[in-house]
Computed example of a mutant assay.
Amino acid sequence: MTLDPIRPDTWPLPQTPYEAEALAFCRAWLSGQTEFTLYTSGSTGTPKPIQLTRAQMQASAHLTGQTLGLQAGDVALVCLNIRYVAGIMMLVRGLELGLPMTVIEPVGNPLLDFNTDRFAFTALVPLQLQTILETNDPGKLAILNGMKAILVGGAATSPALERAMQVITAPVYATYGMTETVSHIALRRLNGSDASESFTALTGVDLGTDERGCLHITSAATNFERIQTNDVVELVDPMHFRLVGRADRVINSGGVKIQPEQVEQVIQGVLTTLTSGNDNTTRRLFVTGLPNERLGQRVVVVYEQGAWGSWQGQKSSLSQEEWAKIQEAVREKLGVYAVPKELIAVGQFIETPTGKIDQKATVAQIR
């Protein structure tokens, strides 16, 4: 479905319930509606409703346009779920910035049905970008390279995916944000010579940390109210930060606090080297703490067995030697207490409505 924000009289009739929902939001926006109810993704708990004002959403949209150099007439591909803030804000950016929009229902490869179309802007989840790159289709790569900017959010990007995306010449950015901040408030360049490990806050966004080292955010998009997060960060300076992990995911093993996201990053890095550069597949896993009488919690790795079926041929897990390499790498980089004690397979991860791994529900299957 193609929507020209300048010519709403040319908008087509919806062919699916999803298209009808997208059109209903766009018409409500053009009617001047001043408040909207969106829902959090539910990645760290039950989805909850958030009331956002038109002014907040406009501030976010225009700041993104300014940051990425988007101009009226630039064509946007909207392929994220419009039932959540990331998808809805793609629609708002189109309507506010004058970007013609191609709106499709979320799929694994959103470029599958496009060959010659040229988009200037899109937002993807990591799995979508990985799926596109795995096709090794020069035509799809040309579409990506023709864009002014590609946003990637909703989940962390793995070392394997970040390596794979270096073939993209268009700028690719990881996003940091949430429903309460009306989508992203900071970007991190993922490819090219300007790639960085730090997020850069958008203009006018004020950052700080609380006593836990967790980020708080104030901006026009938050109505200048302070939004306190549970994300532990290293605040490099007032405009830059490195994301360490979630405070509510910290594992306490033998009295030592371990940030599981750091362990996950080391593991994915080792998996990348074990493939000798021949495989850019991201294997779904997460690190968590399970009860242990002596340590309080023991560090374990939970992986989705079905997603590892092609690991080095037909293997569905790691050899003892490969597992030992992972443990040694974690020991060297993060210390002995962070070394995972066990590798646990589950048939399939339970997911949230936005496709994120529901770690609590998945772990509940193990116990």
Rank of each mutant, 00 (worst) to 15 (best):
G45C: 12
G45N: 11
G45Y: 09
G45H: 13
T46I: 08
T46P: 02
T46Q: 13
P47H: 13
P47Y: 14
P47E: 13
K48S: 05
P49N: 06
P49Q: 07
P49W: 01
P49E: 11
P49I: 06
I50E: 08
I50N: 01
I50A: 10
Q51G: 02
Q51E: 13
L52S: 01
L52T: 01
L52C: 06
T53S: 15
T53A: 13
T53D: 15
T53W: 15
T53Q: 13
R54M: 08
R54P: 07
R54D: 04
R54T: 03
R54G: 03
R54L: 08
A55F: 10
A55S: 14
Q56L: 08
M57S: 02
M57R: 03
M57D: 00
M57T: 03
M57I: 04
M57E: 02
M57Q: 01
Q58F: 10
A59R: 08
A59K: 04
S60N: 15
A61R: 11
A61V: 06
A61E: 07
H62A: 06
H62P: 00
H62I: 15
L63K: 07
L63T: 03
L63Y: 01
L63N: 07
L63W: 00
L63S: 10
T64I: 08
T64S: 15
G65W: 12
G65N: 06
G65C: 10
G65I: 03
Q66L: 09
Q66F: 04
Q66M: 05
Q66D: 13
Q66Y: 02
L68T: 09
G69L: 09
G69W: 04
G69K: 05
L70T: 06
L70S: 10
L70W: 15
L70E: 10
Q71C: 07
Q71E: 05
Q71W: 00
A72E: 14
A72N: 10
G73T: 10
G73C: 02
D74T: 05
D74S: 02
V75I: 07
V75P: 00
A76Q: 06
A76F: 02
A76V: 02
L77N: 07
L77D: 05
L77Q: 07
L77K: 06
V78C: 10
V78H: 00
V78R: 01
V78K: 00
V78T: 04
C79G: 08
C79Y: 11
L80F: 14
L80H: 14
L80Y: 12
L80W: 11
N81G: 12
N81W: 06
N81V: 12
N81Y: 13
I82A: 00
I82H: 03
I82S: 01
I82F: 08
I82R: 00
R83P: 00
R83L: 07
R83H: 09
V85I: 15
A86I: 05
A86D: 04
G87R: 15
G87F: 15
G87Q: 14
G87C: 15
I88H: 02
I88K: 07
I88A: 11
I88L: 14
M89E: 08
M89Q: 15
M90Y: 04
M90T: 11
M90P: 02
M90Q: 13
M90N: 12
L91G: 05
L91V: 03
V92A: 01
R93L: 06
R93Y: 14
R93T: 07
G94K: 04
G94I: 12
G94Q: 05
G94C: 03
G94Y: 09
